[in-house]
Design a protein around this nucleic acid. Sequence first.
DNA 1: CGCGGCTTTGATGTTCATCAAGTAAAGTGG
DNA 2: CCACTTTACTTGATGAACATCAAAGCCGCG
Lengths: 234, 234
Amino acid sequence: MKELITLSYKCDCKECIIRNLFFKHLKEEEIDTLCKSKVEKFLKEGQTILKEEIHNTYLAYLKSGLVKYYTEHKNGKNHIITIVKPYESVSLLSIFNNTNLSYNISALEDSILCLIPLKIIKEFIFTNSEFSFDYINSVTTIANRIIERFLTLNIKNLKGRIAFVLLEFADEIYKSDSFKLPITRREIGEMIGMTTENVIRTLSEFHKEKLIKITGKEVTIIEKEKLRKISLFG
Amino acid sequence: MKELITLSYKCDCKECIIRNLFFKHLKEEEIDTLCKSKVEKFLKEGQTILKEEIHNTYLAYLKSGLVKYYTEHKNGKNHIITIVKPYESVSLLSIFNNTNLSYNISALEDSILCLIPLKIIKEFIFTNSEFSFDYINSVTTIANRIIERFLTLNIKNLKGRIAFVLLEFADEIYKSDSFKLPITRREIGEMIGMTTENVIRTLSEFHKEKLIKITGKEVTIIEKEKLRKISLFG
DNA sequence: CGCGGCTTTGATGTTCATCAAGTAAAGTGG
DNA sequence: CCACTTTACTTGATGAACATCAAAGCCGCG
């Protein structure tokens, strides 16, 4: 019995990692190395990891749940950079270099983070060129997406921003036009640079105009095409 | 005589590249390869290269001069992402992956771009792991800087933004508190998300308050510490 | 039950974009 | 080199968009 369990043991990274972009070219033995050195960290909803705790030590990776990746400013105003879904990296950008801003991670649902020692990543970069290439592609893609998002948001008015973020939730995070908001109204504001009050006002307007149905955190998008137009031209 | 010239020929990349971050670990023969396959492109002040012209073919690199890296929106509004100094990369972020936004390059002074075929870069990534590592560091550093800049600007008011951009010119581009603006007032607006009129108004205010001296494009920063405070808290 | 955080609505004020109109500077063609 | 056109710069007036302030209801939690 005991032996059976031992025999049936296999590294779960093999399954997990397949789904990922930049680990696809790791060899069997490399995945074993990865698997042995990785640390899984369970985060309860609401729990936060300050950047310093993992910075310069681990590459953080979301295995399950949902987390936000955000900065804190001295004046108490936060800015949510992105909401991270499973199988996405949380700390790609700041790896291997210091930055002044602290990017923190906070769980929006119970989540499991996979922490991979940077030492191992660095090793792979030096020994597996296909990995390096995949890694570079991932980094540039993520960076581009974040920058594009900033540029896009910057030219939108409040209605456009709310429409934009609703479509983000529907199309990118939940793949459904009905979903439960994982964040507060204030946090929506922190995602798109507007005040809590105006987030609420705009959501209410959309509700009254029957573009969406929103009660508490439950959202249903009704007039998706109109919303898309508002997002695009607003 | 002729032979002498031939003998004294050496690849100028060897000198040029030393100064650079992510080419420092290329071997002699790799630099030769690089040198032979690179293309230099002269850009006259005001001349523009549309993204499509180099996208997916070259890594662009500024050898001398000054260029802006910007996006065009349908509504005619542009957004300057960054001003690029010599020995900085112009197209790092979009390399190896497609993006919808078109990032164009336009010369603010007569400039020389060094275009390196992506094929070569890719080759180096696959054959020189130290290069890969340096490259990853560069990409993440650049991405971080751009993102930090967006976050920083977003929470500033108009005065804070103008102060910020003036300090950028002084400290990062010209390394001097006296300089000639390489761009128009409209373009300053495109760098920090404000209208031409308000750029002018704010610059005039700073002039009246004797924080700076500005006549035409000539700028001298007088009260640097005050400007810093405005940038920080504005 | 009461406290704190979230949500909501209305009233008020500020910041900033827009509009207008004129001057200066720079490029263009005869 | 001068008239002509265009682009850049400047200032003031107006209005819209948005933040801020205030007050109250709601909900979950110790």
